[in-house]
Design a protein around this nucleic acid. Structure first.
Lengths: 214, 214
DNA sequence: TCCATTTTGGAACAACTGTTCTGTTTGCCT
DNA sequence: AGGCAAACAGAACAGTTGTTCCAAAATGGA
């Protein structure tokens, strides 16, 4: 939750934490003198000193001569991300490919909010709605939302959206590369794996997460 | 996004909008005089008058004698909610029951963030981690997070966490009440429903959503 | 119209607040 | 020990800011 920064002295960390807590609780930033008393600092000049330091280090923005003119530059990092919902995923059709402007917020595409923890650090994540019950072997049902990451290769054991060229079919399975063949393992333990030629599988993306709203 | 309130004069509405925009853009509330110039008001006393009015009407909280001591009371509905993660759900054990202080933020329990859209408007939502592969008939696998709502009855067709007294087992299924019996329908269409006596089923909660992080 | 209520104007006060200045202390490296 | 940069103290100044007082204008019924 609260992460300490390595390049801050304990005093500066304390000031930053105090501002965060104050802002969270009261809805407006503290004054310099409130910081002084709140952090056990003895003089306003010391607080000013550290505030200037925090600003040059990029942790907050200051508005000179304006009372309580503090602005946290990292808005309490919002714990959530916005990803584009670019289409549907169904058994018989390749998944929609995110285009260059897909992530443009101004686009007309739907955007959905997801907890940042679900896609921590991952780039190029987009969302697809599942149509049909063809993916129950992947423990995914009609109406689920699948978060995908646009990649063309995955590590062994990762779950991917796989286009089977021969079968002309999309399937979500764990991909294992084995001596001359590819093993596609369903998430549902009661289903058997599929073995096929490497040329038959086209990775369309990595499955990052699944959301089901009942 | 911005909703006009019916019980506000246009001036008060303008002031409220201005405060919202100012706060959004600068990160701290405006001063009375900034409100004056920003809204085309001629005197600080007029602004003070309207601010007092806005406070008594419940749209903001004021901190007297504190510069920029304005706090918008409208929870800026943050598109995400925090729910407590109170334990595990496994086949052979009843689900943990949320206690009165479970939702107390100060508790040591883990809190997780979820998109508000997943639990829109629902009360008493908590989270459980799934242990084991015993619920694949519900399209739920080991490691999934299940969002539950603490209720003791569900409507026909809703998915619930059901404790089967005879079998001493937890299962997640759609519940249908049928003439003298209860039909428990798995989400996975390839599984058969279970029929049992009403006395054998104890609803432990409604399943609101499922999160799977791969 | 007349009266009560609401809204507006203008000004001034006292407290709040950011800034700056000078000097001191502390920690740390050579 | 000596030197240097960071951190600390105290005080004072000037602009900002919430509040209040008094009076005027607008509004809205009866």
């Amino acid at each position: 939750m609260k992460q300490n920064q390595v390049d801050l002295s304990s005093r500066q960390q304390a000031v930053l934490d105090y501002i965060r807590a104050f802002l969270e609780e009261r809805g407006y930033p503290p004054s310099v003198r409130e910081i002084v008393t709140g952090c056990g600092i003895s003089s306003t000049s010391v607080a000013a000193f550290h505030l200037k330091r925090l600003e040059t280090k990029g942790y907050l923005r200051r508005h000179p001569d304006i009372s309580r003119g503090l602005e946290l530059v990292t808005l309490p990092d919002s714990e959530e991300s916005t990803v584009p919902l670019i289409g549907y995923i169904a058994a018989g059709k390749p998944v929609p490919v995110p285009s260059a402007d897909t992530w443009d917020m101004t686009g007309a595409a739907d955007m959905i909010k997801v907890p940042r923890s679900l896609i921590a650090g991952k780039e190029a994540v987009y969302a697809l709605k599942v149509k049909g019950d063809s993916m129950q072997d992947a423990l995914i049902s009609d109406g689920d939302t699948v978060l995908m990451q646009a990649v063309s290769r995955v590590e062994n054991g990762e779950t991917a959206a796989v286009w089977l060229r021969d079968e002309k079919e999309i399937t979500l399975k764990k991909v294992y590369s084995e001596k001359g063949a590819v093993r596609l393992q369903p998430a549902n333990v009661q289903f058997q794996p599929i073995f096929t030629r490497p040329e038959n599988v086209q990775i369309q993306g990595r499955v990052v997460a699944v959301l089901r709203n009942l």
